[in-house]
Computed example of a mutant assay.
Amino acid sequence: MPFITPDNGSLTVFNLFDTVDRAGQKTLLDTMEGIIKGANYPGWRSSTLHGGLDKPCAANYIQWRSLDDLQERYEGENFQHNTVPYFKELTTTVHLLKTEVIATHLHPSLERIEISPQRDDFTVIVIMGVEPGNQATLVDLFAKPDSSMQDVPGYRSNSILRGLDGDFVVNYAQWESREAYETFHNLPEDERPAHTRAMRAQARPLLTSRSSNTYEVVFARSASDQPSAEQSAGGR
């Protein structure tokens, strides 16, 4: 199953899709799951499909070996002439965000960050817009460890990813439940630790936009899950 770590050298891509309604979301998720099951593209490492909870949408967290591998896939004739038009029919908006993992923070009870449908994580993806000149500062602020988080009920992990285009930062977070996340998210500012308030005060003026949604992981597959050539031949 896929794992999030800043030292595996992967290019991480977020494919974000909005749909009109839940029926459209189901069709989109079924279609994407079928594509992931058959994925064998050069340089592709993993895909983790998320279904939107607060609104009908989907997010695909994809790990690639390199930007060149990603471009080879997305510039291919089949993708441009078949996949792209089909997804435009299924969705209202599509965003492709190229990122790299800068830092990961996790509860002491976890050894590493796994993203899998076998887990029951309540996932939150936050996209923070920033002027390119301020991106490094914003990344540094969120990348610093915050020991107080290990005492927050229901907190599991969060990962900070830098947008390669230079104008956004992503916070990918896992929680035990919606209740745990909302309790933390809605905590009055004066009840947060002093160092957390200071960090948030520094970060807030740097943001040019902020959007978020909540998800559950519905399907995941890694390149290492693929059958060997011998197994594939035997299954034909």
Rank of each mutant, 00 (worst) to 15 (best):
C57K: 09
P6T: 10
L161N: 09
D54H: 07
T104K: 13
E230A: 12
P42T: 01
I115M: 08
L97A: 09
T99H: 02
V13T: 12
D225C: 08
R119Q: 10
I4V: 15
G163K: 14
Y155Q: 11
P193N: 04
V101T: 09
S10Q: 10
Y155D: 01
N78G: 03
A173W: 04
V217S: 14
L70S: 00
E176S: 11
S177K: 07
D225E: 15
H107I: 04
E176Q: 14
P85T: 01
Q150C: 09
Q202F: 04
S232W: 14
T214I: 03
G24S: 06
P85S: 04
E216V: 07
S46A: 11
F14R: 01
N15F: 08
E77V: 13
S66G: 04
Y86V: 00
D30G: 07
L28H: 07
K144G: 10
D167F: 12
P145K: 10
N134M: 13
E89L: 14
K88D: 15
A233P: 00
L138Y: 02
E131T: 07
L49I: 07
N8K: 09
G9W: 15
A103I: 02
F17S: 00
I113H: 13
L164H: 03
A23T: 08
E179C: 06
A198P: 03
L90R: 06
T19W: 02
S46T: 09
T123G: 02
T183A: 05
V169W: 07
Y172S: 06
A198H: 14
S228E: 00
T214L: 04
R210W: 01
R210P: 00
L67T: 13
E189D: 15
I102Q: 11
W175T: 05
R197S: 05
N186M: 13
G51F: 02
S209N: 06
T48Y: 05
P145V: 10
T12C: 13
N40L: 00
P108W: 05
T5H: 15
A39K: 14
R45L: 15
Q150K: 15
D225K: 11
D68N: 01
F219V: 04
A103Q: 06
H107C: 09
G76W: 04
R221L: 02
G51E: 01
G51L: 02
G34D: 11
L67I: 02
A136D: 15
V124P: 08
N82I: 11
